[in-house]
């Protein structure tokens, strides 16, 4: 494969800019998704009457529709009822909407793995519900959920490539753009792959270290 290095050097800065947008959207989207997951999984854990059904419906809707469709709904659908959001906002909300359900399920399984006796012994020491969750149940559940959460994070970062569909100049968008303009398919795609790897490999490595440390700290059994 003969790559045009001049082309690569010339357009590399575009990729850097695009990578910043990708990371920006991924960061805030995932953070939001995690917050959604914490709240929803807690509601499921406590079996909050009506809310529980709503969350279950949300999880099904979110997991069984493509992100691109969700983004189209936010970007092209919502303006019809008077809600106009910027592309970035739509992208972050979209990632949060999709990721929220994955985080919910991952955290829920962690919460449910904690023995009931933990809650009871905390209660018998006079802890209220909030403290029991914050100090006793959640930290233990997190340790169980971390591998799943890491997998979700990596999955969601990759999913951001879909936001080019609503005209956001992320990595995917820039690559498609360059191909369309100059027909430099090899160069554009090579740079795209490298860009994603440069973002994802460190995240992946960090996840591995985190998982290993949790296993070693292994306060569990």
């Amino acid at each position: 494969m003969n790559l045009d290095w001049n082309f690569i050097i010339k357009y590399a800065p575009l990729y850097v800019e695009a990578a910043k947008l990708t990371v920006f959207i991924a960061f805030w989207g995932i953070l939001l998704a995690f917050a959604v997951g914490v709240l929803c999984s807690a509601a499921l854990y406590y079996k909050v009457p009506v809310l529980r059904r709503i969350i279950q419906a949300y999880v099904e809707l979110s997991r069984n529709t493509p992100l691109l469709v969700q983004l189209f709904f936010l970007y092209f659908g919502l303006p019809n009822i008077g809600i106009v959001l910027s592309g970035e906002a739509c992208a972050m909300i979209g990632i949060a909407f999709l990721g929220g359900s994955y985080m919910t399920e991952t955290l829920r399984s962690g919460l449910e793995s904690i023995d009931k006796i933990q809650e009871e012994s905390a209660a018998s020491l006079g802890f209220n519900k909030w403290f029991t969750m914050k100090e006793i149940i959640f930290p233990q559940a997190m340790a169980v959920s971390v591998p799943g959460i890491c997998a979700n994070v990596i999955f969601l970062i990759k999913e951001t490539s879909v936001v080019s569909g609503i005209a956001l100049a992320d990595l995917m968008y820039v690559a498609k753009d360059l191909i369309g303009l100059y027909y430099k398919t090899d160069e554009a795609l090579t740079m795209l792959v490298i860009s994603y790897l440069m973002i994802l490999l460190p995240v992946s490595a960090a996840a591995t270290i985190l998982e290993r440390r949790l296993r070693h700290a292994g306060f569990g059994n």
Binding site: I117, E135, P139
Partner: peptide
């Protein structure tokens, strides 16, 4: 929660908090 502080309870199954060391378990 206030009344429970007057009642110390020890269960059959070991109910210590596995993510905290012994001293934390006691002083938390």
């Amino acid at each position: 929660p206030r009344l429970r502080q007057k009642i110390g309870m020890v269960f059959q199954s070991y109910d210590l908090f596995p993510h905290r060391n012994i001293l934390d378990n006691i002083t938390l």
